[in-house]
Design a protein around this nucleic acid. Structure first.
Length: 417
RNA sequence: GCACAGGUGGGUGAGUGGUUAAAGCCAACAGACUGUAAAUCUGUCCCUCCUAGCGAGGUACGAAGGUUCGAAUCCUUCCCUGUGCA
């Protein structure tokens, strides 16, 4: 009889370069080289991109969203189907957000109390209650490798009293999240598929399977190595107040998590302020634990945050902007819908190795967008994700090589082939 | 030929005497997008001028004429389109 063990996700730092770190995060569904950019797949799908393509693009871990999946198809459905990995046939790592961000973004459809948050569904208006406990229950049921404490993402601007109250609430919710998680983490759906006596070897096979072996890519391969459980990360809040950020960090650390996120940023504040808060908050986070900056950013920003010592980032920007015709290239932003590209036979980004830039012209991409073809969204997203993932790979490489001086500028401009 | 029904800005299509340069939608053009209520949202979209504004002129609802203080809206004739009947 398999005894399910609960060793947390582990993190090894391989190289420190200034404030930046390159490392490896070990999860039940594979290793992740950090710093890592995590594409967002809110509804168990990175919009427009099939899972095998994501693997080819080098996505190591993707996000899912508890609130959205809870509403549709429902946590119990996903759990019965073996968890998110099996359900969506994604063999690599997954992180779920707790729904904390929806406390912020659905501000007109929610009511926050000490106990939790009542949401009105954006789908049908029905009322739903999320608490730290129910958010953990849901995330355990979904079975992501990394799950997030249920927090309140504080709005901007907010007065100091409001920020403090919000931070305190998040701290109380963090304790409740951890307590529930510790008591229930063995209920994760993939324990049923655990194979005794396997560890990293299984992880590696999964990676191999992910690199193009269609025959072995069935749901049966969604088998995590034993010896791992999900990992619950805590979230630091504190608004734009350095002191409160410090206090939030210290008290979250006191509760104790295998990784720490910086939340509540990129909520409308000036970019320079974001950077300041990130930098000052990072100083108070443990050096030996993964640090996850939630919800950022532009290509320039993710490079900069990595250089400051952030290990994990996620953002809807590359995927959403792609669907809206905004493409990131080595030469800056390209709004492919502009009339000026109608006759442009050149590639989107001459320095980009992605399949889109190798094959299609700007004129064609502009046409697809103008004609509202679904392929426009697919190709644009493939490019933007390639750009982001490739950028982070170069950042990792740069850190590993100790190229500190070239870090920010060098990574940005791609060497000519 | 006769009888109906129609002709509105790039396209559709509201509007049947006055806050109408003319709704809405589409197209076009530009902008936004940062733990996804997002294949979404915002702005511009007749011409000219400037002190750039709920600014000033001009032109405009098939054509020409008429009624009226005032017409896309009412009348007359003509042109054109669709349907039906010969």
């Amino acid at each position: 009889m398999l005894q399910f063990q609960t060793v947390p996700v582990s993190f090894h730092i391989e190289k420190v370069n200034g404030k930046a770190r390159a490392g490896r995060l070990f999860t039940p569904h594979g290793e992740i080289a950090t710093p890592v950019f995590m594409p967002v797949g809110t509804l168990a799908s990175v919009k427009g991109i099939p899972q095998d393509t994501l693997e080819e693009l080098g996505a190591q871990i993707i996000l899912g969203n508890t609130y959205h999946l809870y509403l549709r198809p429902g946590v119990e459905t996903v759990r019965r189907l073996g968890g998110l990995h099996r359900f969506m046939s994604w063999h690599r790592a997954i992180l779920t957000d707790s729904g904390g961000f929806q406390v912020f973004s659905l501000n007109e459809l929610r009511k926050v109390t000490e106990e939790g948050v009542t949401f009105r569904s954006h789908l049908d208006g029905s009322s739903h209650f999320f608490s730290p406990e129910s958010a953990m229950e849901a995330q355990i049921g979904l079975g992501a490798d990394i799950i997030m404490a249920f927090d309140e993402c504080t709005e901007f601007p907010a007065g100091r009293d409001r920020v403090r109250a919000s931070m305190e609430l998040t701290l109380r919710w963090a304790e409740r999240s951890k307590k529930y998680f510790e008591e229930h983490k063995q209920e994760v759906p993939w324990k049923e598929y655990s194979v005794p006596g396997t560890q990293y070897s299984v992880v590696n096979e999964l990676h191999a399977a992910g690199s193009g072996d269609v025959a072995s890519a069935g749901t049966g391969n969604c088998v995590p190595s034993t010896g791992y459980s999900q990992a619950l990360f805590g979230i630091v809040q504190g608004g734009m107040d350095r002191e409160l950020r410090k206090e939030s960090a210290e008290r979250t650390i006191e509760i104790g998590f295998p990784g720490y996120a910086i939340g509540g940023l990129s909520v409308g504040e000036p970019r320079e302020l974001t950077r300041e808060i990130v930098e000052s908050t990072l100083e108070h986070l443990p050096k030996d634990k993964p640090r996850y900056l939630m919800g950022v950013g532009t290509p320039e920003e993710i490079v900069e945050y990595a250089s400051l010592g952030v290990d994990m980032m996620d953002c809807v920007l590359p995927t959403r902007a792609a669907r809206h015709g905004l493409l990131f290239t080595s030469e800056g932003k390209v709004s492919i819908k502009q009339a000026r590209y109608a006759q442009d036979q050149g590639p989107l980004d001459p320095n980009c190795p992605c399949r889109v830039c190798r094959r299609y012209s700007r004129a064609y991409l502009r046409h697809l967008y103008a004609a509202n073809e679904v392929l426009a969204q697919v190709l644009n997203t493939i490019h933007n994700l390639t750009f982001y993932l490739d950028l982070m790979a170069r950042v990792r490489h740069s850190i590993q090589l100790g190229e500190e001086s070239r870090f920010l500028s060098g990574v940005w401009s791609r060497p000519k082939p």
